[in-house]
């Protein structure tokens, strides 16, 4: 039964060689495309050229709620990427720029999904503490404005923390 053996060897060789040869012939003008598909190349190009960055623009005046000790600020967010984004959270501490004193925290009211080339409004809430009020009264009583820094800013987009 050498014929069976020969047939099986022939089958093995054909199965192993034919698909790869077919793909090589299909991509003979662009062998690079065999390993990096056009979809991936498009995304890679758009991400690497860096010409389009996410746009964050404050919208309107911040709304203060003195009893709740919060400031609500709307921010317009434009997604320039070729894929949908889901902004899950924004977290940061607000610190007094002069004394590095923690005044409060920043958070995102709710997760927002932003499609390709879409613009959505993010609702950012800044909460200040009673200790912050005491600090402002003690250290900045005579000042009209106090400069604050965002410390440890973390944005969670599609599960990736930046």
């Amino acid at each position: 039964m050498d014929k069976v053996r020969l047939l099986l060897i022939l089958l093995s060789v054909t199965i192993t060689v034919a698909p790869t040869t077919g793909v090589v012939l299909m991509h003979k003008d662009n062998l690079h495309g065999m390993f990096i598909p056009p979809e991936m190349e498009g995304i890679q190009k758009k991400l690497s050229d860096g010409s389009e960055q996410p746009m964050l623009t404050p919208v309107g005046e911040p709304k203060y709620n003195l009893s709740a000790r919060t400031v609500t600020q709307l921010i317009e967010f434009k997604n320039p990427f070729p894929f949908d984004l889901k902004v899950n959270s924004i977290k940061a501490d607000v610190e007094c720029a002069v004394h590095d004193f923690r005044l409060g925290a920043v958070s995102l009211k709710e997760p927002v999904r932003v499609g390709v080339n879409e613009t959505k409004i993010l609702t950012v809430i800044i909460t200040w503490t009673t200790a912050a009020e005491s600090h402002l009264e003690a250290a900045h009583a005579s000042e009209d404005t106090v400069t604050a820094n965002l410390a440890g800013l973390t944005v969670d987009v599609n599960g990736v923390q930046i």
């Binding site: 034919a18 790869t20 390993f35 990096i36 598909p37 894929f83």
Partner: peptide, 19 residues
């Protein structure tokens, strides 16, 4: 593979898969 809900395959890997 899928990147941000966009599915794609690598042609060379696809050939190996068919084999």
């Amino acid at each position: 593979f899928s990147f941000a809900d966009k599915a794609f395959t690598i042609p060379f890997v696809w050939a190996l898969n068919i084999s």
